[in-house]
Structures are given as C-alpha cells and as structure tokens.
C-alpha cells in the first residue's frame, strides 16, 4: 500500500477508481444494451434500451453462419491452446531445469516470434495452404495459432516453472522417487496453476485473432467468430446487421468475462510474470 495517504487523498483515489471502472466497462455495457434494443429502436441514440428484447439473439442463433463460426472458434482455439501448452511445457521445463547449449537461443527465438508481424507471412501461408489443402480448414488456423502463441506459452511457463522450489524435486529423489515419479507426484501438482494460466492466455489470443482468420478461411468450414462478425450480413439482406453484430459480440464476450472474473489473479500474474521479474 502507498505511503501515508490522508483522507482527502483516499477520496481522490477512490473517485479515480470509479472513473477507471466506468471507462473500462462503458463499451461493454453499450454493446450489451445495443444487443437488447428492438430493431426499431437501434437508431434512437440512447445509451440504454427503452425495452429489452431478445430478438437479435434469436436471429443470431438461427443463423447457421454464426453457429458454425462459434463451433469453429471453440474447436480451433481449444486445440491450438492444448497444442501450444503441451509443446510450451516441454520446452519451458527443459529451459528451466536442464543444462544444455542453446537454451538462450531458444528463448531469443521465442521472443523474436512474439514480435513478428503476422501480416508478413499471410501471403506465403495462403499460397502454401492452398497447395497443401489446408486453406479454409481447422488445421490451417490451428498451426499458425499454435506457433504464434508458443512464445507466450514458453515465456509464461518458464516464469512459473522458475518459481517452483526445485529442491522439492531433489528431495523427492532422495525420498526414493524415480525421476518420473518425482515429476508426476511433486512437480506436476505444483506446476498445474502455471500451466492453467498459460492456457488461459493462449486461448485468449487464439479466440481474438482476426487477420489469419480472414486470410486463411473463406467459408463456414473454418471461419471463426471475429471473422464472421466482421462479415455479418444479418438474417435478411435488407436489414442493418447492427443488432445481430451486437448480439453475436455479446455471445463471444461472455465466456471471456467469466474467465476474467474467475481467474483474474492468475491472468495478471501470467501477464506480468515475464516482464517484471529481475
């Protein structure tokens, strides 16, 4: 806590907090409110709906394009997360625990990929994926997502793994465990929270991506929600899709908000672990 705040100062910081919360939440409340307005009220320029209606939600869920996109998003982000976390854990464990030449190089490589502009490779990927038959398929997105989240996974996991008191591994060995037993019974339970955090961060990245999604897909076969939202046509051609977009946005935002509420501590620890230590 900060040093020696007077009451006035505390009031000041309290008011500041309220402003921050409002600033952070207004666009979210706004899109929810938009999604609940009746079609006729969409142009009323009000912040809150006069009457709440679920018509846009009904429309969105009737739209096969959106259901397909939702399914694609969940599947693709889920599989990418699993793959990135598994491969990332292997690498992070090796980097933290084993002495071998090239550890620094791997960290540096991961770091440069974290800074890599995805737009630089969408052309080649587009061309390669068409040749390999990966264009507009799940693997076509899973592969780049996994790769681009590997650095995040490796850095976060190494930061977490470094915090594990590795004396415990030695203690287990002395207590009579084989290396595998020491790993499964002592290290895995301790590493699980870190792995879980890395998984959340990776999932958020994959769930959020737009550039790969619109460059490497073209149909409902693999198009994810962000791409679908950007290209929404609405339930009928003559209707403004605003309400549908808002409803779809809320649907994909809700899971993220739940995750944030449940795991905020972990997410913050994961976000800051790499940058702040040392």
């Amino acid at each position: 806590m900060a040093v020696g705040d007077s009451r006035l100062e505390r009031l000041f910081w309290g008011a500041g907090s309220a402003l921050v919360v409002a600033y952070a939440l207004i666009p979210v409340v706004w899109i929810v409110s938009l999604s609940l307005k009746r079609s006729a009220d969409l142009g009323d320029n009000r912040f809150l709906p006069q009457v709440a209606s679920l018509e846009h939600y009904a429309a969105v869920f009737d739209d096969p394009q959106f259901s397909a996109a939702l399914w694609n998003s969940i599947g693709i982000a889920g599989i990418s997360t699993f793959a990135a976390v598994v491969l990332g854990s292997f690498a992070a464990y090796a980097i933290v625990r084993l002495q071998f030449p090239g550890r620094r190089l791997i960290l540096a490589a991961a770091l440069s990929i974290a800074m890599f502009p995805p737009v630089s490779i969408i052309g080649p990927l587009f061309n390669m994926w068409r040749t390999l038959g990966l264009y507009d398929t799940w693997p076509g997105l899973i592969i780049p997502y996994m790769t681009f989240t590997l650095p995040l996974a490796i850095w976060t996991l190494s930061a977490f793994f470094r915090e594990i008191p590795w004396d415990l591994d030695k203690a287990a060995r002395v207590d009579g465990a084989t290396p595998l037993q020491a790993f499964l019974r002592v290290i895995v339970p301790l590493a699980a929270p870190g792995v879980f955090t890395a998984a959340i961060l990776v999932f958020m990245f994959a769930w959020n991506d737009f550039l790969f999604a619109i460059s490497l897909t073209s149909t409902n076969d693999a198009r994810t929600v962000p791409a679908a939202i950007a290209f929404f046509t609405g339930s009928s051609r003559f209707e403004q899709p605003t309400g549908s977009i808002a409803a779809a946005s809320v649907v994909v935002t809700v899971p993220i908000i739940i995750v944030v509420l449940l795991f905020q501590r972990r997410i913050v620890a994961g976000l800051t672990s790499g940058a702040v230590k040392g």
Binding site: R173, V174, D175
Partner: peptide
C-alpha cells in the same frame, strides 16, 4: 541413483 542409496536428507529450504 539417489533412490537406491537409502539415505535421507534435510534441505536448508
């Protein structure tokens, strides 16, 4: 391997 030496250890930590 440590597990085959039947020794017990107390660590500083």
């Amino acid at each position: 391997d440590p597990k085959d030496r039947n020794m017990a250890m107390v660590f500083q930590s």
